[in-house]
């Protein structure tokens, strides 16, 4: 897959004119993979690497990767927005930056990929979210987040794939070959693991187990989605979004199709971050919210009085 796209190739034509020439970078440091999107001179560049233990090192590595791919120099980047669970640790001495939550970034990113999008299902490595989006501006209207249990997240799918001796990608493909999806009843990832072992021991087809796993995960997500009453156009984003088995299970359970966009939606968060960086430069967003460790203006002014 190409790492470089002209804006008009991937961005929704109704909003593409809102993008500027400013060179901005969005980092989405997820629990499993870290993504970057660089917007520069009418083009969108992407990079992805596994998330390491140290977030700053991961960000620096990702930064170097995307600069190498795009041919730009570090000092040409005018603003950075960091998002994802590793966002807090980010720091870029010479480049202005801020952090924004992945919820706002996914909404903005999805909006620019499909301006009609009203709803997002975002399944990442350690949580899943349902987000309602304002079609006028890509801002979040409402959201809900499941982080209580690993079931319903990418981590569960990884664990299940391991138990079946498959990669996550193979697990998704296998699910499409199922003739009778297994009934995975447990709502708890720990007990679900026992069920998988039992099903395996009984000689159940791996394809059926794989489909059962995706349906079990999708059921949890469906309940989350139902709470917000999501409606089409619906975009599926996050690290699990390119799992074809999960895609099918969600469509089956939700009863309507998921909108396809022209960019791999694992980049939706990083794209949204990069767009928010452009908006910040344009003064449409607050340049810098108070970051940990900094003294508030109020404190400074009041103590001076």
């Amino acid at each position: 897959m190409s790492h470089e796209h002209a804006f008009h190739q991937v961005i929704d034509p109704t909003v593409v004119s809102e993008l500027r020439n400013d060179k901005t970078l969005g980092f989405d440091l997820g629990s499993r993979t870290s993504k970057a999107v660089l917007l520069a001179d009418g083009k969108l560049h992407t990079a992805i690497i596994p998330t390491g233990i140290y977030m700053q090192q991961t960000a620096d590595k990702l930064f170097a990767r995307i600069l190498k791919q795009s041919g730009y120099a570090r000092d040409q980047v005018r603003y950075i927005v960091g998002t994802g669970y590793g966002r807090i640790a980010l720091s870029f001495d010479e480049i202005p930056s801020k952090v924004v939550t992945e919820i706002s970034c996914h909404a903005m990113g999805a909006h620019f990929l499909n301006a009609k999008v009203k709803s997002i299902v975002d399944i990442g490595g350690q949580d899943s979210k349902a987000i309602k989006v304002d079609t006028r501006n890509g801002k979040v209207v409402e959201f809900i987040m499941n982080d209580k249990c690993a079931a319903g997240t990418g981590r569960f799918l990884e664990k299940a794939a391991n138990l079946l001796g498959l990669t996550v990608e193979e697990l998704g493909q296998a699910a499409l070959q199922a003739d009778k999806p297994s009934d995975i009843s447990s709502q708890c990832v720990v007990f679900a693991e026992s069920e998988l072992i039992s099903l395996n021991a009984r000689g159940e087809r791996r394809e059926n187990i794989a489909a059962g796993i995706h349906l079990a995960t999708a059921r949890r997500v469906k309940n989350l989605v139902n709470r917000l009453g999501l409606e089409p156009d619906l975009v599926f984003s996050g690290g699990v979004s390119n799992n074809i088995g999960m895609w099918k299970a969600l469509e089956d359970l939700l009863g309507h199709s998921i909108s396809k966009v022209k960019l791999d939606t694992v980049y939706a968060g990083a794209l949204g971050a990069s767009i928010l960086a452009q908006k910040t430069l344009a003064g449409e967003e607050v340049a810098e919210k108070l970051r940990p460790g900094k003294t508030s203006n109020l404190a400074a002014s009041a103590s001076a009085n």
Partner: peptide, 15 residues
């Protein structure tokens, strides 16, 4: 607080 809890709070105020 957990990171996810902080994410919720911040996302809510961003919203």
């Amino acid at each position: 607080p957990t990171g996810q809890l902080m994410t919720r709070v911040k996302a809510f105020i961003e919203m």
